[in-house]
Design a protein around this nucleic acid. Sequence first.
DNA 1: GGACCTAGTTAGGCCAAACTAATTCAAGAG
DNA 2: CTCTTGAATTAGTTTGGCCTAACTAGGTCC
Lengths: 232, 232
Amino acid sequence: MTTLSPAVEDYLKAIYEIQSEGDQDRVSTSALADCLGVARASVTGMLKKLNAMDPKLVNYIRYRGVQLTPAGEKIALEVLRHHRLIELYLSEALGYSWDEVHQEADNLEHVISEDLEDRIATLLGHPQVDPHGAPIPDRDGNISRREEVQLTQLGIHQPAHISRVSDHDPAMLRYLQELGLTLNAQIEVTEKAPFSGPLHIRLIGTEIVHALGRQVADYIFVTLGSTGRKKS
Amino acid sequence: MTTLSPAVEDYLKAIYEIQSEGDQDRVSTSALADCLGVARASVTGMLKKLNAMDPKLVNYIRYRGVQLTPAGEKIALEVLRHHRLIELYLSEALGYSWDEVHQEADNLEHVISEDLEDRIATLLGHPQVDPHGAPIPDRDGNISRREEVQLTQLGIHQPAHISRVSDHDPAMLRYLQELGLTLNAQIEVTEKAPFSGPLHIRLIGTEIVHALGRQVADYIFVTLGSTGRKKS
DNA sequence: GGACCTAGTTAGGCCAAACTAATTCAAGAG
DNA sequence: CTCTTGAATTAGTTTGGCCTAACTAGGTCC
Ligand SMILES: [Mn+2]
Ligand SMILES: [Mn+2]
Ligand SMILES: [Mn+2]
Ligand SMILES: [Mn+2]
């Protein structure tokens, strides 16, 4: 088990992420290239290598995209655990805001030891979710799946709360923060403009309504009903 | 200022360290090779590159060893600041012991942002020394020089305190810990066996005396007199 | 002064991970 | 069933960082 390079870890993580938020189970070369910011040809090269490794980390078929093998998925989850624990740690212990944590975690995730991982997890009380609401895999690679829907799928006047937001665009996170659309915010959709127009979102218990563009709304996931915690 | 690779940072750091604890100001190829754990030929290759960079990071003359240029020294100090702040942070905030911090810091030092560096420094109250007593350079690369001597140079019955210990050998650090020879311990040398024999070290205020081999003693630096703080 | 040793350098290669440019494939439109 | 086109792959380079093996500069010793 020669230690894997950051590049390999990032590929596996990216495959996992695309796989788990898209519908089809095979991930395309271009989707990966876009996500990682490298040329398609580079992706093809790396996929061949991952496919040829022992143990095989990926199931790759020319022109057909890739899938993670169980071994590959295990590593992806390990990296994801690092990433999300670090994000949470930075925000809890060092006062980072939710738009700042991602970049820093992306570098640190490849470099912390299992020991440091454990200490952080313990110090945080073995948390379940990161600052963007994404579930944190446990040490054995189990990850809790919740029933969430995209905000764009939510029916009119269906009360729900924000349970997860994409962590990739800091500017968008700052924007949502300003609007009060943070994790666990209770909301309902009051109106959906046609032709992919904006969604009108009301913060439950207030008269505040925001009109959100579809691109932004696509990055927000909600769970039906309230958060379980009584409101303060 | 294209971001420097971890390898380059480690070379510069190593040159700085060897330079500042040895007597001669030029660092030899083999000293670097030993310190970094790479082949001599690899060092020659890297030194040529550092010498050819713009800005020039190193002053390298064939067969004559290297020196850091001001630009190179600035980077070395920056990396050293990262390393030492991280070591201290790990021990203060995450309960690491002084023999565990070095390895972890060696990886993290290349990867933290200036922002994280600042937050850690602030959280620790802009500390002056790391867990091994090494001075932490400030943000501008100023480093405080103290008058320390090697324990082996200390005169008989000269009261002194331990002000610094090499961080490179965890086993040795654990050993010293067990003996109570930790940072700021008040000590005196009661006896020096001839022919590079052991030193007898007494913990001041007690009857405890330890016999230390010369190799161990070489890694310990002391400052004359007491630590300035009254004993508790 | 010549032989010898060691530290240091050169030469030549390897591997990982990226790139560009040229080519090939797959799948839908007609 | 063929054509077209965008996605994907191949081919060929580059760069960085390391390696081994072979050679050389310079100091030591007789
Ligand atoms: Mn990453
Ligand atoms: Mn881990
Ligand atoms: Mn390092
Ligand atoms: Mn810095």
